[in-house]
């Protein structure tokens, strides 16, 4: 495995007029590494994720990605065609609300197959075989392949969205509150699934969440954000067991114990 970071983020800031979205964020992400970004609502987690995934242009700072050809490319300087191609092949984006990431009016099979067709797969049988394989991997019955996602439960939709993103074997997946709005038992199953997939596929992932339990389960490393800035970062277990910043201590002690 390459020892070079997959993603290099250098001093990224995003301002909405005079308001701060996020400021002076720098970090590096290596292949196979899962990074959690935690913080309360409005702390800039999602803004940062959007800047990293080119859904928003940062006001200043550089985000560089290690392309498959071994070159580092500044995402902001990439052409739109190339960026969109990267987004649907080498990257994945899992939305909090599955309806944002899925095509609700086409079948589950077509949802999974869309990326394959987008990169030029023109064999129906193969596309369908790959789609059923992926549905199985995310624990959706193959008999549901021709059902539309609107007939699926929230947890199934989220799993379908994950399958749809992983079908092109991306190297980097962005997840925005992947377990938001799911009940705890479904959350647990989803987390289990994501953890398994990340491990099996050697994915790098950046997960935005306000749920520290999600971060604990999935991530190797975490960053704590407050008011747009990263106030603490380190290994997940270290940050959660031995928080240094007062705000992080507050956050950790706010977890309800059952």
């Amino acid at each position: 495995m390459s020892t070079l970071p997959l993603l290099k983020v250098n001093d990224v800031s995003k301002f909405y007029g005079s308001r701060i979205g996020c400021r002076n964020v720098s970090f590096e992400l290596y292949a196979g590494e899962v990074l959690a970004i935690v913080g309360e609502s409005g702390s800039g987690k999602t803004t940062l994720l959007s800047c990293l995934s080119t859904r928003l242009m940062p006001t200043s700072g550089i985000v560089e990605y290690h392309m498959r050809d071994g070159q580092y490319r500044d995402l902001a300087r990439m052409g739109e065609a190339e960026r969109r191609f990267l987004m649907r092949t080498d990257w994945g984006f899992v939305h909090q609300n599955p309806a944002d990431g899925l095509r609700m009016t086409v079948s589950a099979g077509a949802n999974v197959g869309e990326r394959l067709m987008a990169v030029g797969d023109r064999h129906y049988g193969n596309i369908r075989a790959t789609a059923s394989d992926w549905l199985q991997r995310v624990e959706i019955g193959v008999d549901r392949i021709d059902d539309q996602p609107r007939a699926f439960s929230g947890g199934m939709r989220q799993r379908l969205q994950i399958a749809r993103n992983l079908v092109t074997s991306p190297r980097l997946v962005f997840m925005d509150e992947p377990t938001g709005g799911l009940d705890v038992s479904v959350q647990a199953r989803l987390l289990d699934l994501v953890r398994g997939l990340v491990h099996d596929l050697g994915l790098a992932a950046i997960i935005v969440t306000h749920d520290l339990a999600v971060a604990r389960l999935l991530s190797h490393r975490m960053m704590v954000m407050k008011d747009g800035a990263v106030i603490e970062q380190g290994l997940t277990d270290r940050v959660l067991d031995d928080p240094r910043e007062p705000y992080t201590q507050l956050l950790v002690s706010s977890i309800l114990q059952v």
Binding site: R103, V106, S107, G109, A110, E114, M117, Y124, I127, D146
Partner: peptide, 10 residues
């Protein structure tokens, strides 16, 4: 092709 896929699937 997603549209054509849907056709065949249905």
């Amino acid at each position: 092709h997603v549209k054509l896929y849907e056709d065949i699937a249905r």
